[in-house]
Design a protein around this nucleic acid. Structure first.
Length: 369
DNA sequence: TAGATTTGACCAGA
DNA sequence: TCTGGTCAAATCTA
């Protein structure tokens, strides 16, 4: 549920910021459209995540509420977002789903799109659909797929191509779908905060694309059992299906730290020393509304906006050092990085930042002006 | 030259 | 027997 809550708040915040800064953004249609795309991606992923989640849990009432996720954001936007915290109790997902003011992200986004004008060609906006390619650059929202594990621990096929599966060895299994890179090496699997070593590739029956097998780089030294499989979707080659098996144990060190795999939060906005599994030299960590949020999700989400804004603002960022950039919170010319502040403000409730969420866009507006 | 990737062969579950 | 998963030698690359 943590991804759900994260996406929910993040999308609402972005929408609110766009609405509040339409005067500034009016002269920057590129930023506007990309921002809108990002928001729609967030909300669409949220919708899919919720739908799938409820299908798994079989809670029909929640499903109905999710389907009704409707006019709420529009209504909420009309209030100027001022009633956000009153309208949404993010500590209580039931309250969020049941609250008419927070229902209807899709309609809200459609409304935004109407405000912002015609979408770019090539920009896939499938607000009511499930097929959103949310973010350019290959960092996509995380969409959890249902995985069926029967009582014996073996995996039941959840797709037609999974006819036989080896018995699970008791490891936790997690299946997600992420957007494939749209530039550069298109075969590179999406970054997820860990380093992986490819140990095999295999053509899979009835699949157009081969499946790649990865294990944790540190399997040798830390006996880390984590593995993942990456395969491009048959029907949508721009999406990867990534199957994670087993959790990382290689992060265990002399410094106690909750495992990322278990989605446990870390202390307030501190810079962590590099860890064996992390691809980053440092990791931006947050606490946010006391929620359990996987840092990888947080970083990916925050990076989307970072990359888009950075490019639009004429930066030379490549987005290759996501966590490092966010952690530094600086442009190369040592300017403050608005999105880092934004992420910091958002995910830390604004308590630890001198820049409030309301000021982020206005400060950016200064740059644009 | 060490580490990563590729790829054919082998293993094991269904 | 078929197929997915893994191994390990060969190859590549920084």
């Amino acid at each position: 549920m943590e991804e759900t809550k994260l996406l929910m708040l993040y999308g609402c915040k972005l929408a609110k910021n766009i609405e509040e800064n339409l005067p500034n953004l009016a002269n920057r249609p590129g930023i506007l459209l990309k921002s809108c795309d990002g928001i729609i991606g967030v909300f669409s992923n949220l919708k899919e995540l919720l739908s799938r989640g409820q299908m798994i849990s079989g809670q029909s009432q929640e499903l109905q509420q999710t389907d009704n996720i409707g006019a709420g954001i529009q209504e909420w936007l009309k209030t100027g977002g001022k009633s956000y915290h009153q309208a949404t109790d993010l500590h209580n997902p039931q309250a969020v789903l049941g609250n008419p003011r927070t229902r209807g992200f899709s309609e809200g986004c459609a409304n935004l799109k109407g405000v912002l004008g015609q979408q770019e060609s090539g920009l896939e906006l499938m607000i009511s659909g499930m097929n959103v390619k949310s973010f350019a650059g290959g960092i996509g929202g995380e969409i959890i797929q249902p995985v069926d594990v029967d009582a014996s621990g073996s995996i039941r096929a959840s797709s037609s191509q999974c006819k036989r599966r080896r018995k699970d060895d008791g490891h936790k299994i997690r299946v997600i779908r992420v957007a494939a890179p749209q530039m550069g090496n298109l075969d590179l699997p999406p970054e997820d905060g860990y380093t992986w070593k490819k140990y095999g590739q295999k053509e899979i029956l009835e699949s157009r694309y081969p499946r790649s097998y990865y294990c944790c780089t540190h399997r040798k030294f830390y006996n880390c059992p984590a593995k993942k499989q990456v395969q491009r979707l048959n029907h949508d080659h721009s999406m990867f299906e990534v199957t994670y098996r087993g959790g990382h144990t290689c992060h265990i060190s002399s410094t106690p730290r909750p495992p990322v795999e278990q989605g446990m939060i870390r202390p307030i906005a501190t810079m962590q020393p590099p860890l064996p599994c992390s691809t980053s030299s440092s990791v931006l960590t947050t606490h946010w509304l006391s929620m359990d949020i996987k840092p990888s999700v947080l970083e990916s989400t925050a990076t989307i906006f970072n990359k888009q804004m950075f490019q639009e603002l004429g930066g030379e960022g490549t987005g290759s050092s996501t966590a490092g950039t966010l952690a530094s919170g600086r442009f190369p010319d040592n300017q403050a990085l608005p999105v880092a502040d934004m992420a910091n403000t958002m995910f830390n409730g604004g308590s630890s930042s001198s820049i409030g969420i309301e000021n982020i866009f206005s400060s950016m507006g200064d740059k644009w002006n």
